[in-house]
Design a protein around this nucleic acid. Structure first.
Lengths: 207, 207
DNA sequence: GTCTATATCCAGATAGAC
DNA sequence: GTCTATCTGGATATAGAC
């Protein structure tokens, strides 16, 4: 909450409204599909204000992507630092509530040429996924040290698979216009992971 | 090869050139990012020709997406119907040569609102991923019947995880502008899957 | 800080000549 | 079948008044 006005429970200031509108639109339509006009209409802000606060579309997108990445990081951290075994925490991350058919607001950016091509715009996306994978790696490695997970498991590779299953699950679900493939992919990975857990240390797999 | 001219090793006909250009552009820029003008310039074809052969952008995109989906299906089938155990065939699919940083030309379509929203455009994408998952399911189930894979494995869920790891691997790789996360995710999944294989039936895991 | 006016270029398509 | 001309609207930004 960077806005003083908002802390007083009033309408967020202009700059803040612009960032939030951009976050929403980037999620819904991607970078190419989001026009400055659409942003300022959703923010109920005039064109002059927009170009006063931001240099242009990419500048605004940068602020929005940073904000969204920060939010995702906090959400993931909550799951991964929760209670239970390493398996439980990874499962909590994989199974957390998601609006699957909307896709991942950060993952989506990687499909946008203008974002990936621009080092500044790509950076927050890169950092988010880098952090996520290393955080999951930590959780898995800790599980190994505690004897919850088989020593033969490669924490980093497994972490990459976990992150990939989520991102790929979104793709499969959107293709099918159905959340089922997402859930199936998550379940498939968790079942494989459960086989690496020392008996007695893992919450029973629901399936 | 639908074109007679092409079979005689000459310049593909106009219609064919348009479809191919559209395939390339959809892969590079997605649906929203691809303009009719860009298509006809790449195809070296006049605007009149384009609107003669196709009703418009979405009609052209439909032809291009169908063609690309068909190609992907053939490529996947080659890997999945190859020699070796079920594990080997799934590994062959996961590790086949890919231009990872370009992303998946079909998976990319799921990030495009105009495609997912339009039932006709979404259908070939949906069918491709549906086929892929059921084909991998078959391979895994066959492996179980042959005693190569543990009976406790859920073929459908595991197949969804396999497809998701590929699609998600693309996302992670593009975010990092580096193929390493893709390879790591694939390796992570394969290691987990190898643990489900009956000893002696699986090619040694390289790692 | 915010507004309106203006400008340039491109998207996406239609019309009708050849 | 292919070409050029033309059209409407939107993308993205700048200018300068208030």
């Amino acid at each position: 909450m960077s806005s003083t006005q908002e802390q007083q429970d009033r309408r967020p200031d202009t700059r803040e409204r612009l960032v939030r509108s951009t976050q929403e639109l980037l999620w819904e339509r991607g970078y190419v599909g989001t026009s400055p006009k659409a942003i300022l209409e959703r923010a109920e802000v005039g064109q002059g204000s927009m170009y006063h606060h931001f240099a242009g579309k990419s500048d605004l997108a940068l602020a929005a992507i940073r904000r969204t990445a920060e939010g995702m990081r906090e959400t993931a951290e909550q799951c991964l630092s929760g209670p239970g075994t390493a398996y439980d925490r990874v499962a909590a991350y994989l199974q957390r509530e998601r609006r699957v058919l909307r896709g991942c607001p950060i993952g989506r950016m990687t499909q946008d040429r203008d974002v990936v091509k621009d080092p500044e715009l790509r950076r927050p996306v890169d950092e988010m996924f880098r952090w996520l994978q290393s955080r999951i790696t930590e959780v898995l490695a800790e599980g190994q040290r505690r004897g919850e997970l088989a020593a033969g498991l490669d924490p980093a590779a497994t972490a990459a698979a976990v992150a990939a299953v989520v991102q790929g699950g979104y793709v499969l679900a959107r293709a099918a216009d159905d959340t089922a493939p997402f859930d199936a992919a998550v379940q498939g990975l968790l079942t494989l992971l459960a086989a690496q857990a020392t008996p007695g240390t893992t919450t029973a797999n629901d399936r």
